[in-house]
């Protein structure tokens, strides 16, 4: 699939933003986060900015942004619609909870309910995002049990790293957050590794033979394309990253997205000092790594339509 930068940006940024909101909601409600006003302000601002950027980015690839409002209407069947509805709905608890936190300095009691609602809605939104892809049978690399967990965990991991960085820079990073973030990073790496192993096994459900129905006669090979230049479908869904490059990029994603942040955050737990610099570095590294990861999520995914255009399997 063509890795549109707007969609890479959308899923990584909003994923991180919702991840932050989820931690803010849960750990804040549990009273495990610093209550220093700059932290709250910065954390919510960044989270909302990320979510907002993501949502705005997600409209960049629309042919008709002026009609985007229509996308809220089909929540009964469309995950994209659901995602939109959830994203907007999330702003309600976020406003309540964030308002309480930033303006009133309160996160407990009834405000904690808003916190949990924020976390729930944030994760639900991320789940909806994941299901936009996960629901597509046409892309075996997406239509599997690894995708939603990966989106959720990566959202938490990236949100955790960013929140740690904000905390370290504005107050002090609470070790619970750091530990949970480390856990999320490790889990994320494991899920991602599992995901990659999964998609490396070719999916044989649809093949050139089933696509054309000609398998009953013999082996099928595309000879003539319908049009000699590539068409929109191929540009959109025929994008392929070379195996060799994919390997390199996966390594970069693992190193920048997981290994370095794990190490950096690990060091902050073990050694005092440099926490701000280390978590900031972890955040930057993770941002780059996750962007690569997300780019690969698209670029490595093969659409069954390519079976009509010369692929033997997806």
């Amino acid at each position: 699939m063509r890795p549109a930068y707007s969609i890479v940006l959308f899923t990584t940024a909003s994923g991180a933003g919702y991840g932050m909101l989820a931690w803010l909601g849960i750990l804040g409600a549990a009273g495990l986060l610093p209550m220093a006003p700059p932290f709250g302000l910065a954390a919510f601002a960044l989270a909302v900015a990320l979510v907002g950027t993501g949502l705005i980015a997600s409209t960049f690839h629309l042919g008709h942004r002026e009609r985007a409002w229509r996308a809220f209407s089909q929540w009964r069947s469309s995950w994209l619609s659901r995602e939109g509805v959830a994203a907007v709905a999330t702003f309600v608890p976020v406003a309540l909870y964030g308002g309480g936190w930033v303006l009133l300095g309160r996160t407990q009691g009834p405000w904690a309910v808003a916190g949990l609602a924020t976390a729930g809605m944030a994760l639900l939104t991320v789940y909806c995002t994941s299901m936009i892809y996960g629901s597509l049978k046409t892309v075996p690399a997406w239509h599997n049990g690894w995708v939603s967990p990966a989106y959720l965990i990566l959202s938490l991991a990236s949100g955790g790293v960013l929140l740690s960085a904000v905390a370290a820079l504005t107050a002090e990073a609470p070790p619970e957050l750091t530990r949970l973030t480390l856990l999320a990073l490790a889990a994320g790496l494991a899920v991602k590794a599992g995901y990659w192993r999964h998609i490396d096994r070719p999916d044989d459900a649809s093949t050139a033979e089933t696509a054309t129905g000609l398998g009953r006669i013999g082996a099928v090979r595309a000879l003539l394309s319908p049009h000699t230049a590539d068409n929109w479908v191929l540009r959109e869904m025929g994008y392929r990253v070379a195996r060799r490059h994919a390997g390199t990029l996966r390594r970069i994603a693992v190193i920048l997205g997981f290994a370095l942040p794990l190490a950096a955050l690990g060091v902050t737990l073990a050694v005092a000092g440099f926490t701000g610099a280390l978590t900031f570095a972890a955040a930057v590294s993770l941002g780059a790594g996750f962007a690569v990861e997300r780019w690969l999520f698209f670029a490595e995914a093969r659409h069954v339509v390519t079976l009509f255009y010369g692929e033997q399997r997806t």
Partner: peptide, 20 residues
């Protein structure tokens, strides 16, 4: 008149039958 050109339907179609 309603289509926002998101392209998702083309992704969902196994047959490449939709083109922007």
């Amino acid at each position: 008149d309603w289509c926002i050109g998101c392209g998702l339907c083309a992704w969902a179609c196994p047959y490449g039958a939709r083109e922007m």
